[in-house]
């Protein structure tokens, strides 16, 4: 949970209507974002650790810490698999 991630260089986000989709322009991989996913994505700024993001969201959504951490890890794992985020030192 101490890892830090940032959007990949070629990632784009749709800005049309209700639909929020991330896409890697070079790979063509895409992920649709729900409200929680969007909240996590907006916090992946290359500075905050996953633990800090989970703690922040726990306050916002009032959910148990274990559940929040698990959701953050699963979502970021999915983004990483699709090369939409990159780890930062």
């Amino acid at each position: 949970m101490q890892q830090i991630f940032a959007p990949a260089d070629d990632v784009l986000m749709s800005d049309a209507g209700e639909l929020k989709v991330l896409m890697s322009m070079q790979q063509g991989h895409f992920v649709e974002l729900n409200a929680t996913g969007r909240a996590i994505w907006e916090r992946l700024d290359g500075m905050a650790t996953l633990a800090a993001i989970a703690a922040d969201l726990q306050d916002v959504y009032d959910i148990p810490p274990e559940q929040c951490e698990a959701e953050v890890l699963e979502f970021v794992g999915n983004l990483r698999e699709h090369r939409l985020v990159e780890p930062r030192d």
């Binding site: 070629d10 800005d15 049309a16 209507g17 639909l19 989709v21």
Partner: peptide
């Protein structure tokens, strides 16, 4: 041949078309 300067514009237009 899509380069970084036009990628976001195209992506936004694909999004509008897809919806």
């Amino acid at each position: 041949c899509i380069t970084s300067d036009i990628a976001q514009t195209l992506f936004s237009k694909w999004s509008a078309l897809a919806q």
